[in-house]
């Protein structure tokens, strides 16, 4: 009887398998932040973002760029460093329940990664197309680029690398080596950011916003394909989770 009571107490005190609060908070963090960003674009894109030589452009857009770049470097260094520093050095000896809990935490990261990819690769990238069809750009750092290339892309890179590092440092599944498709799904979309260099280099020679399908943009396309590698990650996860649950679901 006493042992049973102890067990129930232990269960009640135990952390939940899926921390729903973290999942919802993470989802809302990006959602609320990007709604605010879209509001900022709507107001200051038109009022201060049309002429890069104007003083208000410096105030509202270049300062936005400087602040976001500093924050991204600080946050990525801090977050990745923390995940690595607090890694589990005895990852192969955790209990199945703890492993399941960590898979849920890992999937919270992956949900955040997918959500961040949506905002970066879909929402802000196509938005850039209509901005270019509306104003004549006189700088590489046009308002839509300050948001798309230098904010939304770094955010999904930071999220993707964090998910990868979490899996690598805390889950026995990924202790075998480097998961090829996981690397493709993180490094491929990351390569879109360096490809901005090619894009901007090209646009300083040729004004061709009239064609979003211009070959200069194909680098983005090639690296965008890498998002499909999430299928390999899903397959590996399904196998790992099935192994943990199979006995109880049979």
């Amino acid at each position: 009887m006493a042992a049973t009571t102890e067990s129930v107490k232990a269960d009640a005190a135990e952390a939940p398998l899926l921390n729903k609060r973290n999942l919802i908070a993470g989802f809302m963090l990006y959602f609320v932040f990007y709604v605010w960003v879209r509001w900022y674009e709507g107001v200051y894109g038109w009022s201060a973002g049309l002429d890069s030589f104007a003083p208000e452009f410096e105030t509202y857009w270049m300062n936005f760029l400087y602040i976001e770049l500093v924050l991204e470097v600080v946050i990525s260094a801090g977050l990745w460093g923390w995940i690595w520093k607090t890694r589990d050095r005895k990852v192969m000896s955790i209990t199945p329940r703890e492993e399941l809990r960590r898979h849920f935490t890992h999937w919270t990261w992956l949900v955040m990664y997918g959500w961040a990819i949506y905002w970066g690769a879909s929402y802000f990238t196509e938005q850039d197309g209509t901005w270019h069809q509306t104003i004549v750009r006189d700088t590489d750092f046009t308002p839509s680029h300050i948001i798309e290339f230098y904010l939304s892309y770094p955010i999904y890179i930071i999220t993707g690398v964090s998910a990868f590092l979490y899996a690598k440092t805390r889950l026995p599944t990924y202790n075998e080596g480097l998961h090829l498709m996981y690397m493709v799904s993180v490094i491929g979309p990351f390569m879109i950011l360096p490809n901005v260099g090619l894009n901007e280099w090209g646009h300083t020679f040729w004004f061709m916003e009239e064609l979003f399908v211009a070959p200069l943009h194909y680098g983005f396309v090639f690296f965008g394909w890498a998002a499909l590698a999430i299928m390999g990650v899903v397959n590996t996860e399904v196998m790992a989770i099935t192994k943990l649950l199979k006995k109880d679901l049979a």
């Binding site: 992956l110 949506y118 690769a121 990238t125 965008g224 394909w225 299928m231 899903v234």
Partner: peptide, 25 residues
């Protein structure tokens, strides 16, 4: 649900950037 959401949004992002830059105009 978590797998479906991630797969859906990742495919959305990759497919959309592919489509808008190869057939977008």
């Amino acid at each position: 649900w978590m797998i479906l959401f991630t797969l859906f949004t990742a495919v959305l992002g990759g497919y959309h950037i592919h489509y808008m830059l190869t057939g977008g105009d």
